[in-house]
Design a protein around this nucleic acid. Structure first.
Lengths: 109, 109
DNA sequence: GAGAACCATAACCAAACGGTTATGGTTTGT
DNA sequence: ACAAACCATAACCGTTTGGTTATGGTTCTC
């Protein structure tokens, strides 16, 4: 897996419409530009441009099929952001604490 | 802990200079605007404006001391971003895989 | 008390951004 | 073969962004 420039990832996800598109692709899986346009509440060209930005960050992949273009989320492209977050202790500690809690509660059931 | 608007957090960290400032504050701890300016490679007003954006996202706090203003990173303000990332499986899977690897290697030593 | 240091804000500017409408190229359906 | 559907790109536009220099308010230092 080739990591994309972290800057592209951070910038791509800074816009709420783009995050919404990415979330939608993750939730409902692969979708055409048409379907995403209905969802996103902006014009089709706007969606196409957002998809270009997401593509640059490798957060989506596309597959042409006739006149349709199907896009799908590529969530492992979040790696640069996750790696960056790894520098911030609270992150891991919080997660492990929660995990520990969970395991304890499971023991006592 | 009051969570700040996720949008502010994402936008604040979308800029590389701002990320650098935040990283520097995390690494080296509390610092004055002056020190950050020497580090950041842009003018002092530019740094002040970046700090304002980081403040809006609650990623930094400041403390006045005479003519100096000391800023410090508030890394638990990353929570909104981390929560958002929690929706993306690859994240956890990757981490647990790595953890599993580590534990296995520890067993065999 | 004068001058220097530190910082925030104002005023300004070019470039990037997020949106629009217009257009044209493929592909599909009839 | 024509019309419609799907999508990307172009052209355009107002706003935001990230930087600058200029300025002024506090607070130190001498």
């Amino acid at each position: 897996m080739t990591l994309s420039n972290p800057n592209y990832v951070f910038r791509a996800l800074a816009d709420p419409t783009r995050r919404a598109i990415f979330e939608e692709l993750t939730r409902r899986g692969e979708q055409t530009v048409h379907a995403l346009t209905r969802y996103a509440g902006v014009s089709q060209p706007a969606v196409s441009k957002h998809l270009t930005v997401l593509k640059r960050a490798r957060l989506v992949r596309h597959r042409r099929d006739g006149r349709e273009t199907h896009y799908q989320a590529q969530s492992d492209a979040l790696a640069p952001m996750i790696n960056w977050l790894d520098n911030y202790g609270a992150f891991w500690r919080e997660r492990f604490d929660r995990l520990e809690d969970l395991l304890q509660r499971m023991d006592h059931e």
